[in-house]
Nucleic acid binder design. Structure first.
Lengths: 207, 207
DNA sequence: GCATTTATGTTAATATAATCACAATAAAAG
DNA sequence: CTTTTATTGTGATTATATTAACATAAATGC
């Protein structure tokens, strides 16, 4: 089935392999990794092969090697600065979120239109939209996390792109209009839930 | 390109069409809708055709009809009860999130293992895991939103499935093990960000 | 050191999705 | 009423992804 694309799968492989590594394993077979992730062994070998990750016939893959290779694919040498736009309910949660604020990403600043939310002296400052271009340029920020209400999303998107941002993680339910060379990934929480409902119904029908 | 599957697209169509409707439009052409969403007109006609949504040659599609049809596909007659597991940083944010707590979904209760977080008298009560089965059965809840740390995710998943839950929206970075008939959708915020980085690099290389 | 075993890596086959091309047809124009 | 025009709906084509099949090679056992 067509559930995930190979880029997403690579990240899942790494996440799973890190856990195996912590448990003391040094090598793994495509079959075992696949069973843990819910992907066929052939799929894993194909993915590895495509990104030139090589194993040892009979002895499987070296976990350390795979992780290093995947990190290289994602250029995971240094933590990357990102800009968070929107310091509302979701924005505040994302700021504290471990997956973002952990070792891989660093939220350099938060942008919000509401002056009462601005804080200049905190570890992660909350600033007005006018400050965004300066922050983006000074820190070479490439990615913005857009967590603002739909009504403000396109305007903030335009501002970010004008300031040099190349990728946006969009939490609004709007389909943002942007040039071809800007990478936009959408997370629509409401739609995800509805999709689950749909699939549940489908499964119940077929049984 | 293979960006979204047709179920996700249907939800995007509805979201966009609702906005058109609010602006006073009554009909729409596949071409216009496609331009707004970033999908080809043929794709839209194929999707509509597949779900038996019919238009009028030369006059396009009736917006009201499409929305009604999509709602029917997703059984959007009555709001659905869901259970939120995890009242931490992300969980609290999700509880207040409009897309969930709006008119489509109703979070009936929140489950958290930490007794200091329990609140029985609030509009949405925060309860211990032991209460989950009762709540699920009494309210016919089919879906759980899992927003707990990785270490607790599988255990809570098992609890939910045992209590009769059929679908899980999983925010942990774990790949949950569950029977085939349980629908699990994963949202991994960290991976989403990394995927954007990858795509940006790719685009820069090819230019 | 040779045979056996078992995993990889890749080519071929299959399945699925997106795009193209165009016939069908409803509305509008003349 | 006839012709023109524009849009739908779908079969054919192309592209992409997944699965199957199997040759290859490393490790193990004898």
């Amino acid at each position: 089935m067509y559930l995930r694309n190979n880029i997403t799968r690579l990240l899942q492989y790494r996440s799973c392999l890190t856990k195996f590594q912590e448990l003391g394993f040094e090598t793994i077979y495509s079959y075992n990794l696949g069973k843990h992730i819910g992907v066929s062994a052939e799929q894993i070998r194909k993915d590895f092969s495509k990104f030139n990750i090589r194993g040892n016939k009979k002895a499987g893959y070296n976990i350390e090697e795979i992780i290093t290779a995947i990190n290289k694919i994602f250029k995971k040498n240094s933590p990357q600065n990102v800009l968070l736009i929107g310091y509302g309910n979701l924005g505040q949660s994302l700021m504290k979120y471990k997956g973002f604020s952990g070792n891989m990403f660093h939220i350099k600043a938060v942008i919000d239109i509401d002056p009462s939310k601005h804080k200049r002296k905190t570890l992660i400052p909350v600033l007005s939209p006018e400050k965004a271009p300066e922050i983006i340029k000074k820190n070479g920020i490439k990615i913005g996390i857009l967590a603002v209400p739909d009504v403000a999303a396109q305007e903030m998107c335009n501002l970010l792109i004008k300031a040099g941002i190349k990728g946006i993680l969009n939490f609004s339910s709007l389909v943002l209009k942007a040039p071809e060379d800007i990478q936009i990934n959408n997370i629509n929480l409401g739609n995800e839930l509805e999709a689950i409902f749909y699939h549940i119904q489908l499964k119940q029908k077929t049984n």
